[in-house]
């Protein structure tokens, strides 16, 4: 068992190497838009779980629009394929959520909303520096 701790350094080195930090200038990214999306996302799953279809649809639309903008933003930046891809995936999750809400399948919609949240997080890992 003791060995478990000794090997750690090596693993870390490997893991650190695998995280590629975006080296592009993101200072012109619309932070307001991102905040709107974050806030909206925070109420999306609760709205879905509360079977609040109307509010959920409104939320999804806002996120769809925001992701559309985000996708175009990264596309125009270049050298940000991850960003483009993640925004596209996000839009898919949003679409799935929307379809499920429209079909009245709130459980499925909630699951899609959670996927969407994970998608946001994944993108932030790469593009959103975490401050104090």
């Amino acid at each position: 068992m003791r060995n478990q701790f000794i090997g750690a350094g090596l693993i870390v080195a490997l893991l650190t190497a695998s995280v590629v930090w975006a080296e592009i200038d993101l200072s012109d990214f619309d932070e307001d838009l991102m905040k709107t999306m974050d806030d909206t996302n925070k109420t999306l799953e609760p709205d879905i779980a509360g079977k609040n279809a109307q509010a959920a649809i409104e939320g999804i639309e806002i996120i769809q629009q925001g992701l559309q903008w985000t996708e175009e933003y990264f596309a125009s930046k270049g050298n940000a394929e991850d960003g483009v891809k993640l925004a596209q995936e996000g839009k898919q999750h949003a679409m799935q959520a929307l379809a499920a809400v429209n079909a009245g399948d709130f459980e499925k919609a909630a699951a899609a909303a959670r996927d969407l949240t994970k998608n946001c997080k994944a993108c932030h890992e790469i593009y959103k520096p975490k401050g104090l």
């Binding site: 996302n41 925070k42 109420t43 999306l44 799953e45 609760p46 709205d47 879905i48 779980a49 509360g50 079977k51 609040n52 509010a55 909303a113 959670r114 949240t117 997080k121």
Partner: peptide, 15 residues
């Protein structure tokens, strides 16, 4: 979950 203003809130927000 707890229904608060029509939203089914949970302890872990949406995470």
């Amino acid at each position: 979950t707890f229904l608060n203003h029509g939203r089914a809130e949970r302890p872990t927000v949406v995470y």
